[in-house]
Design a protein around this nucleic acid. Structure first.
Lengths: 212, 212, 212, 212
DNA sequence: GATGAATGAGTTTTCATTCAT
DNA sequence: GATGAATGAAAACTCATTCAT
C-alpha cells in the first residue's frame, strides 16, 4: 500500500509533467507555425495567444520572452526534422545517387507537409534577433551535415561530379527551402509531381556531364 | 531683365527639380539598403531618417507612407537592374549556353556588388505588406522573363536538357538570391571565384546528362 | 486505542498548528527582509516565493493579499522589537541619561543585527499602500513612546536640555533609521564601534550646552 | 537687411532651442515632483504625461526611457540645489557656527519650500534602478561636501566638538531629509518655527558639552 | 495544504503618421 | 522644403490575484 502510494505520487507527478509537456508542445507548434507563416517581427504574442485561445500572460508563464519562445519553437521543430533526416541517411543502403535523391525528396516532403512555413527560418536569418538566429544557424548546419556526407561519398565513389561540394550544397539548400512556396495551393497529386520534378532537377547538380 | 528673370526662374525651377530628384534618389537608395539588410518590419522610418541624417518628417514630405517609400525603393532598384539584364540578353550573341552563363554571372554580380542586400527582397515576400509585395512579385517576374527566354531557346535548340523549365528557373533564382549571403565578407578575388563556381554549378541545371 | 487515537489527533493537530505557525513565521521574516531591502513596490510575490522556495500560490494560502502579507510582516517584526525596547525601558534603573543611551544603542543593535533592512520601513512610508502604511505609523508611534518617556523624564529631572522634545525625537529617529545603511558591509567590531559613535553623537541632542 | 536676416535666422534657432529647453524643464519639474511624492516605482509615465497634459509618447520624444527621465529630473533638481548651497557656503563670512546654522536652515528651506518631496531621493536609494541611484549618490556626496567643509573648519577652530565628523554629518543629513515630512501641512509661520527648532536642535550635534 | 496554470489589468516602449511653423 | 513636436495604437512584458486539483 505504501509502495502503491509511492507509485501513485510518482505517477501523478509524471502525469502533471506530461501535461505540462503537452501544453508546451502545443504552444511551440503554434508558435512555429505562425513564425513560419509571417516571420518573427510580424507575429505578436497576442497572435500566438489568440490562436491558442489563451491570454498573452499565459505564454509568459512558460517562456520568459518572445525570443525564448522563438528559440524553443525552432529547436523543437528542428530536432524532429534533423533526427528523421539522419535516420534516413543512416539506415538506407544503395548508391549515393539513390540515397541523395531520397534525402532531397524526404527533406522537401517534411518541409511541405509538416512545416509548411518553416522555410522562413532558413531564409533571411538576419531578420531574427541574435539568439534565435544562432539556433537557426546551428539547425542549418546539422541539416547540411547530413547532405554533405552523402555528396562527399558520391564524389569519392565517382558517382557524382560537382564544381564544388560547397556551392552544390548551397544551391541545393536554397532551392529546397523554397519548395513550400512553390507547392503552396497545389493538391496532393500535383504537389507530389512538383516535388518529383524538383528532386529530379536538383539531382542534375551532381550529375556527370555529357561528353560533347 | 524680365526675360532674364524668366530664364532665371525656369533655370532655378529645373535646378530645384534636379536637386529634388537627387534627394529622392538618396532616400530610395538608403531605404533599399536598409530594407534589404533587415527586412520590412525591422526597419523603422527613424532608421532610414537617421542614416540619411534628416528627420522623419522630411521623409513624409517625399513619400506619403512607409509602404509608398518601400514600393518606390523596390521600383528604382528593380528598374535599373532589369534594364541591364534585358540589355545584356538582347545585345548578346552566341550560344544559349554562353548567354545564360553570362546572364547568371551578371545577375549575381549586380546583386553582390551594387545591391548587396537587395536580394532579401525576393526571399520571403510574405513579410511585406500587400502593395510592396505586389511590386516585388512583378519585379521577380520581369527578371524571370529574361532568364526564361534564354532557357526556352536553349531547350528548343537542343543545347539544354531540363526536367522542366519551371523548376529549373525556380532553383536557379533561389540559389542566385542567396549569393550575397554566401559572398559576404569575402574580398574581391575570392568573391569572383565564388561567383564563378556558383555560375558553373547552376549551369549544370541545364546540362545534358552523361550517357551511362 | 481510541484514546490513543484521540491523543494522537490532538497532538497532531497541535503539531500541525505549530508547523503552520513556523511556516508563517518563515514567510513573514522573508517578506520583511525583502520589503526592507527594496521597498513595497519593488518586491513581487514571486520574489518572496522564490526566496522561500515555494510557489506564489502557497503565499495566498496564508495571506489574502500582498497588502495583508506586508501588514503581517511589519506587525511581527514590530511586535518583538517594541516589546524588547519597552522591557528595556521598564526594567532598567539608573539616570535618564544612562537609560536613553542604552535604549538608543539597543534600538540600533536590533535593527542592524536582526532586521538589517527593516528600518527602510520607517523612511518613506508614503510609498506604501494605505493599510500597511497605517501599521507602520502605529509601530513608529509605539517606538516613539518609549523614547519620549525617557526624554521627558530626563528633561523634567534637569538632566537633559532640549530645544523641543518633539524635534529631538524626530532627529533621533531619523538618524537611527539610517544606522543599518551606514554599517552595511562592516565587520562586527567595526560595526560596534560605529554604533557607539552614533550613540554618542545622538546623546549630544539632549546634552546641556557649554557655558561660554 | 541681409545681416538682419542672418540675425533672424540665429534668433529663430535660439527661440526654438529656448522653447525646447523650457519644455524639457517643465517635464523635469513635473517628473521630479511626482517621483518625490511617490517614489520611482509608484509613478508611471502615464502619471507624468497626464499631469503635463500630453501623451506618454511625447515623453519618449524627449527621453529615451523612464530611467533616463528620472536621472535627468534628479540632475536638474540637484544642480540648482547644490549650487545655491555652495554659493551660500562660499560667500558667507562669520563664525563656523553661524555659517553652519545658516547652511542647515537654507538646506531645509529649499527642501521644504521648493522640492517638498525631494527627500525621497535621499532616503532609501535602493528602491531606485542602478543608473538613477548612482546620480543620487553623487548628488548626496556634493551636498555632503559643503557641510563637511564647514564642520571640519569649526572643529579645527575649536568652535565645534564632535564625536566624529562622519557620524555628525550622517545624523545631520538624516534629520534634514525628513524635514519636509515633519512640516507637511503646517502654514508658513508654523513651518518657519519648526525649521528654526530643528536647526537649533541639529546645532547641538556640534556643540561643546557642558562641564559637569 | 500546496501547486501549477491561467488571467487581465497595467506598465514600459516603439513607431507610423500628422501637423503647425 | 524641412523640422520639431505630438499623437495614438499596438507591442512586449509584469504581476497581483484566482482557481481547479
Amino acid at each position: 500500500m505504501n509502495s502503491q502510494a509511492g507509485v501513485d505520487g510518482a505517477a501523478s507527478i509524471s502525469r502533471v509533467q506530461r501535461k505540462r509537456g503537452r501544453r508546451i508542445q502545443e504552444i511551440l507548434t503554434t508558435a512555429a507555425e505562425l513564425f513560419g507563416e509571417r516571420g518573427y517581427d510580424a507575429v505578436s504574442l497576442d497572435d500566438v495567444a489568440e490562436r491558442l485561445d489563451v491570454t498573452k500572460g499565459s505564454l509568459y508563464y512558460y517562456f520568459a520572452s518572445k525570443d525564448e519562445l522563438a528559440v524553443a519553437a525552432i529547436e523543437t521543430l528542428g530536432a524532429n526534422w534533423t533526427a528523421r533526416l539522419e535516420r534516413l541517411a543512416d539506415t538506407q543502403g544503395g548508391s549515393a545517387c539513390d540515397r541523395l535523391r531520397a534525402l532531397i525528396r524526404e527533406h522537401m516532403a517534411i518541409a511541405v507537409g509538416e512545416y509548411p512555413a518553416a522555410l522562413r527560418l532558413f531564409l533571411a536569418p538576419s531578420t531574427w534577433p541574435d539568439d534565435p538566429r544562432a539556433r537557426i544557424k546551428e539547425l542549418r548546419r546539422r541539416h547540411d551535415r547530413v547532405f554533405r556526407g552523402i555528396v562527399e561519398e558520391g564524389v569519392a565513389a565517382g558517382e557524382f561530379t560537382v564544381t564544388t561540394v560547397e556551392t552544390t550544397l548551397q544551391c541545393m539548400h536554397a532551392a529546397m527551402a523554397q519548395a513550400p512556396l512553390w507547392t503552396a495551393g497545389l493538391d496532393v497529386p500535383e504537389c507530389d509531381e512538383c516535388l518529383d520534378e524538383l528532386t529530379h532537377t536538383l539531382m542534375k547538380l551532381v550529375a556527370s556531364p555529357a561528353e560533347n
